[in-house]
Design a protein around this nucleic acid. Structure first.
Lengths: 235, 235
DNA sequence: ACGGTAGGTGTACGCCGTACACCTGTCAAG
DNA sequence: CTTGACAGGTGTACGGCGTACACCTACCGT
């Protein structure tokens, strides 16, 4: 039969890229070995000749997307370098909304993630940070260093949706909820009208991300300038 | 038969508490309707008379643990009040390490979570925050407001372990990894020796959490004092 | 006495990950 | 040219999952 001839041979890389594409399109919940195999025109068990199991597949997918983060810029100071790097990570996560959940549910860091973190620490050290302060800074940034928006409920991460999915309630949430949680309603309404550049959700996610990021970076810079150490706090 | 007599009747609350206990003990991964039913001495389908499906069960579990967070203190300023509240939330998450993943994987906030967030906003507003700034602050705090430690890989959250599980490598990570990621090794080593109060992982998680929390709160306080607004940044 | 109903039961279906035996095409060694 | 090892795709099967659906049963208000 001709159908088995000259089919592009299966490869670990081909599998990982297909898995990433499938997760991008349909959400991580509906990524199964069987779906993935079907996408590749192959029987499910064929995948296991190239990846040990589904967990290793997820690790591989994480390495793929982490590899998309821009390399560090050498031509600026630490602050700008770290800032741009993290914003690049955030762009990656916007392309792959399933990644935060996938990364957080794995129980060990992959090599690619470790390499990324290591290079961020390198930038800090080169910028004059003590090992001590650099360590606390990494903790303080936490998963934001990988671009996680840290939102409790950001619509973009949800499974399946294409992301532009015609938001049903542009003003935030339905009135009976607003009545029960007046303070949430108040700040939600404030966000909707005082910035005309936003659309849909009524809240500029990019602005919020940079707001939090700069809040942290500015605070960190202040500590660095003061020569902060954990043994005796400066003030 | 006597076995079916006088068995404590099934209740939504009894189910939720058993589910929380089971997740605490064995991890969220191994929480299945079948396991849970067995724990309750009941057939799996019996649960469906009290919860619509597994997702609703998870929502109920979230409400249970969020309800464990201390109510707001009224006798201090906003900063101390928010700080204590978040530290209480963190204690809750330490008791229920599965909660962050569960909360993040749900696609809508539960009523209890909304109520909690609303009361935090109320504290901010009472502390003199504009709706605008309060809104950005909530975004900046993100899931840390619920006590999420934001660590990329914190051993405590892993499925199953009892938490004290006799850490195998007290110094952090094995030498061949340390060689490949020298900067990570360096800050890891620094954390191990300069603070004798830590044990096991070589890193005081509580300290790291409060470090990041205070970094944010201090930065936020500075903005508040300056009368920061998003339309024109103060400097 | 009796019908309705709340709540526990049993069976079954379609998914999932994946162990294991099998087949087949390729290619180096004899 | 033969052969046999082996890399890589296939088919079948198993146990676990969530849960739809029909059933049974004990209670309770009339």
């Amino acid at each position: 039969m001709a159908d088995t001839l000259h089919r592009t041979p299966l490869t670990r890389d081909r599998i990982l890229l297909a898995a990433v594409a499938l997760a991008d399109a349909t959400g991580i919940q509906s990524l199964s070995m069987r779906n993935l195999a079907q996408d590749l025109g192959v029987v499910p068990m064929a995948l296991y000749k190239h990846v040990a199991n589904k967990d290793e597949l997820l690790d591989g997918m994480i390495d793929v997307v982490v590899g998309e983060i821009d390399p560090p810029r050498q031509d600026t100071d630490w602050k700008q370098s770290v800032r741009l790097r993290i914003l690049s990570a955030r762009q990656m996560l916007i392309r792959h909304p399933w990644a935060p959940l996938a990364i957080e549910s794995r129980n060990m860091a992959t090599m690619a993630v470790l390499a990324y973190l290591d290079s961020v620490v390198a930038t800090l050290r080169a910028g004059g940070f003590s090992t001590d302060l650099a360590h606390h800074v990494m903790h303080a940034m936490g998963s934001r260093i990988l671009g996680f928006s840290q939102e409790l409920f950001d619509a973009s991460r949800r499974a399946g949706q294409t992301g532009v999915a015609e938001v049903d309630a542009p003003t935030g949430f339905p009135p009976e909820i607003a009545a029960r949680f007046p303070h949430l309603a108040e700040i939600s309404a404030a966000a909707s009208h005082d910035d005309a550049s936003t659309v849909g959700s009524g809240c500029d996610d990019q602005f919020e991300f940079e707001f939090a990021l700069d809040l942290l970076l500015d605070g960190i810079d202040r500590l660095r300038q003061q020569g902060w150490t954990s043994s005796h706090r400066v003030r």
